[in-house]
Write a protein that binds this DNA or RNA. Structure first.
Lengths: 116, 116
DNA sequence: ATTCTGACCTAGGCAGTCTATGTAGTCCGT
DNA sequence: ACGGACTACATAGACTGCCTAGGTCAGAAT
């Protein structure tokens, strides 16, 4: 059943979404969540109650914009795109995440080989 | 002033405390927090309002026990010690943390060299 | 004795995720 | 054309965990 209460990524969801938009260009909400699920091999299943509020926060901060478009199956969906500010935020938050993770690794007395 | 709102370690505080107890044996609350601050080079400053509730949760789960003792300066303090169940929990949560972190690394398209 | 300090405690706030539920647009079979 | 199924979006309320901002109490220092 894999799949973890994604409390495990508390605080990193916005970062993961931004990264997805950078890698693949405009995506709709469900697409972004799917991307996260796939890249994590199904470990993180983002629920809609987490997903949409996160997208709305990103938009409120000006990190993304959106427009209605059609999916490949012809359904209408909001396609989100990174803004310049979003790219800046991505870079910055990526840096923080790495710094924090490095610190936790050190506290846990783990080396890279344990994570890789 | 370095020091990050430790929201950055949301969900990992109990794990970090357990690890400290494993490494150094019985410690009191402030000692555990100091250990985390030191190993993270001052990045994580655990506030008392986070620290004590976390210790109480660990105790409620049976992962630690405590007894009153004296610090080197002669002050009384609760010294916490890992229980068997605590060691098991440590091992398990360590594994989860590594798994989750690995997944996030993959989503962020980062390699070990970026974290190490 | 009084003050100071270190360790402990807790209520209430807040942010982010989840559960549960609801809505609207599009497709498809009949 | 209509009904039903499906997809994407949306949101209220619960819950968890860290923080702020108070406070208590024992022992040391003066």
């Amino acid at each position: 059943m894999g799949g973890v209460r994604a409390g495990s990524l508390y605080g990193t969801l916005e970062l993961l979404i931004l990264k997805g938009l950078e890698r693949y260009g405009p995506m709709h909400g469900v697409g972004a969540a799917d991307h996260i699920a796939q890249r994590s091999q199904g470990l993180f299943k983002i629920e809609e109650g987490s997903l949409y509020p996160a997208l709305h926060r990103l938009q409120a901060k000006g990190h993304v914009t959106w427009e209605w478009m059609k999916t490949e199956e012809g359904k209408r969906a909001k396609y989100y795109e990174l803004t310049r500010s979003g790219r800046r935020a991505l870079k910055k938050e990526l840096g923080s995440w790495v710094t924090n993770t490095r610190a936790i690794l050190s506290i846990l007395d783990l080396g890279l080989e344990d994570v890789g």
